[in-house]
Design a protein around this nucleic acid. Structure first.
Lengths: 345, 345
DNA sequence: TTGAAAGCGCTAACAG
DNA sequence: CTGTTAGCGCTTTCAA
């Protein structure tokens, strides 16, 4: 058992006293906010070191009305997607000497604690909002308050000019499906959509549709199911199809996490990939090259999305300006799950 | 291009005025810190709603000397390990109505900005410290200040009674290696260590050693190399071995991320897994069951480590007490990369 | 049950 | 170049 009490920390006036200057001077040297005689500054630095002084963030925030912190709102920390995105955000944040505050909107804590969990702002200078983590109403509320906001993988509700960064979904998806059609002669291609309101999913589905249309393949609604952009939902969806005896040349899993579920379901059913059914994903997560067979997918620059979004937000905070819409390019990654290359078993 | 200005938000006195009460009363109803006539409270609630009032976190923090947020210090956001751990932490944090502030110790920002990036405290009520993200000196400094600290995957430096939570490494590792020896008759088992000062790695290596000793297999230092607990280092390490013509029955990759690198190197060299060389990992990441062949490994309850650590920290903050050392159990997960089961290709 | 008032530690005018 | 001082918005005694 560990026990701890609380002790007193040095304040700015302790430092001032120790250095024989006023607190204003201490503030100046710490923030380099006005010229200070180098000899005086020296004394201050020494005092800071001796007292092991650290500025009190809350006091600073109160006085300056800036927190030097970015907030990140997530629906819930899940999937493998999350890690690279966070790395990108963290990169931008620390390069700019800021900190990162994360809230995950656990469904159970929703309305109740809203007063005491100030999502509003106050503890951050701006908010990065991942798709589906805030209602349009909340978004609007904050927007009207002029609170700096940047959206990830989501465009703003009508009339709200909130910058947003995402990836090129439709073109990537279309190329992927056309590859299936043109190179592998697939005609019956299943598509696993993501969560309801997920824009990435909608665009990917449009890319899928475009590819079909371009090749005169009639759209069959039975070939679309919900894979939830996650392993479990995708597995069940495919199991359902298999149960119904659905005939399929290929499955576009929606994203790579879902593709793992698709692969599992197919293998359990004794289907060979890609000989019996091809499988493709979207994202190109680190794990995707290690799947068996290695997954053909579309590379989404996830880390860059995070970094770009954070940079836009910082720019918005500092200059009041940001690019309204940033769409990062995607790239087709051909591996073996589509039927290409040295397909092993 | 998006442009934004800044507007004014409601303060507690706006609410007080609006409700016809004093700010003290508003504070009381918001914090439920003293009985308030229900009719008065009602008026306050209405005012809060009408003005869309949110308490100012910094002001609160300054006045109460509590931030209601936990800090998390990471060396750098990398590997797949990170995501489940963070999910666990977030779970505990939001269940307790707190927020999570993340700092990642990017090497480049180290000493310089230390004054302005108050790692010290101040913006958090306590700190979760992941292994290798803070020097012993820093740890000591904060400990002496009585700042609540909990260590992840690391025990405290001598004499510092800082609570710590980690997983049972040695026993798990030993069981894993003994499985290789007893069931698969392996004798020449390579071990890929993690980063230098990483305690998990040390314990896993001890488990490895114990298993050898228990079976009268002499320890051969040539069979230990550095895999850095990541894919790339592990791949190069194995490539080196292969280049030297090292003979190996099996490779214990240190962790699952490293195992992906081992598998890649082995396959590139035309080795079959597990027929030519068995491969095992540690952690049981979500991706591990999807590797080819599915990875035999030791399951570490990563998410629980995060959750437990956060809970301990919250307890330490609130009650001044916490369990000194929590070691979560691990479990052997037999799949096919060791040679068990229906080994396919 | 409620109000008045004193800070919390810092930044940012404003003087000098 | 340096010091004085007025708040920032809230919590928390102390009185009433």
């Amino acid at each position: 058992m560990t026990t701890a009490g609380h002790s007193q920390r040095a304040t700015i006036s302790d430092v001032a006293k120790h250095a024989g200057v006023s607190i204003a001077t201490v503030s100046r040297v710490i923030n380099q906010t006005a010229p200070v005689a180098s000899e005086t500054a020296e004394r201050v630095y020494n005092a800071v070191a001796e007292l092991d002084y650290t500025p009190h963030a809350a006091a600073r925030g109160l006085a300056s009305n800036k927190t030097n912190t970015l907030g990140l709102l997530l629906p819930m920390i899940g999937g493998s997607y999350f890690s690279p995105m966070l790395r990108g955000i963290e990169k931008a944040v620390s390069q700019n000497g800021m900190a990162l505050l994360i809230y995950s909107m656990q469904t159970d804590v929703h309305q109740s604690a809203r007063l005491n969990l100030p999502l509003g702002g106050h503890n951050s200078d701006g908010l990065l909002v991942f798709t589906n983590s805030l209602s349009d109403a909340d978004l609007q509320r904050m927007y009207k308050r002029n609170f700096p906001l940047v959206l990830l993988h989501q465009t703003p509700p009508a009339n709200l000019n909130i910058p947003s960064v995402t990836v090129e979904n439709k073109a990537g998806s279309r190329k992927l499906v056309e590859h299936l059609i043109e190179v592998h002669g697939c005609r019956r291609i299943g598509f696993l959509a993501g969560p309801e309101e997920h824009e990435d999913s909608k665009w990917r589905q449009m890319g899928y549709l475009e590819a079909l249309t371009a090749h005169n393949i009639p759209f069959n609604p039975e070939l679309v199911a919900n894979g939830g952009f996650n392993e479990n939902d995708a597995r069940s969806a495919v199991e359902q199809w298999l149960l119904k005896g659905m005939e399929l040349d290929a499955i576009f899993a929606g994203d790579d996490d879902a593709a793992t579920g698709v692969i599992t379901a197919l293998k359990r059913a004794g289907k060979r990939i890609p000989q019996d059914i091809a499988v493709v994903g979207f994202d190109d997560l680190p794990l995707s090259r290690h799947l068996s067979p290695p997954l053909t997918t579309v590379r989404a620059p996830i880390e860059q999305v995070g970094q770009e979004a954070a940079n836009q937000l910082i720019r918005l905070i500092r200059t009041g300006q940001a690019t309204s819409l940033v769409i990062l390019p995607t790239e087709l990654i051909i591996r073996q799950s589509c039927g290409c290359g040295s397909s092993s078993s």
